[in-house]
Design a protein around this nucleic acid. Structure first.
Lengths: 101, 101
DNA sequence: TCATATCTTCTACTATGTAGAATATGCCAG
DNA sequence: CTGGCATATTCTACATAGTAGAAGATATGA
């Protein structure tokens, strides 16, 4: 089972495509849904998802033009997409026909 | 922030209307999304949500016709609905335009 | 070579989610 | 009127997910 934040992180990876790494994932979540999550939370989740095989990571460009440490780029795997699909389908079934407000 | 399971439980309450208590909440989740959760997990979540004011509970009918212990009936509060709405809106914004499969 | 910017790791902790045994309570058969 | 059965909730103990922010790594450019 995927937790809520795990789903959000996976969605961020898809959104960001090639440019998904710790800092951008965090920024994307903040901008999209106004949830200011700590950078530690992002990496913890990312690591967990990688351990489960739902995403994979590689070290980015070894000679970047900007300053600072090398990025660690994250990409969702096929398994990850399937898990995301499953979780959302379940959720949608639960929401079906429920009216709020 | 509402966790995923918390949202599922709140949705179950809305679905079940007057007939929402521990056992039916559990059954509803199992039937809807095939997630066989333990009864302890259901009550733990229910208690937590009540503490946060997102639902309230009362002891059901003191003279029930069937056998067994009295039910504890759960109803979502206005605050609970608002929280649910918020969580789902955030989620939808994150999902916006993302295609899986 | 050091101040600065960018990014990841680490440490410690709180909250959520999970399981199943224990307990409470009412009906009904005998 | 009591023991067996069915229905429900509570309790105990633990695993996983989520959180925060300090510390560490590494590249640029003055």
């Amino acid at each position: 089972m995927l937790g809520e934040f795990e789903q959000i992180v996976l969605l961020a990876l898809i959104r960001l495509a090639d440019d998904a790494y710790g800092m951008t994932v965090r920024r994307e979540i903040a901008e999209r849904i106004g949830r200011d999550v700590s950078i530690g939370a992002v990496y913890a989740t990312l690591d967990r998802l990688e351990k489960k095989g739902l995403l994979k990571s590689r070290t980015g460009d070894p000679t970047p033009e900007r300053g600072g440490r090398a990025k660690r780029i994250f990409v969702i795997t096929a398994t990850g997409k399937k898990a995301l699909q499953g979780a959302q389908a379940a959720f949608d079934r639960m929401r079906e026909g429920v009216k709020l407000g």
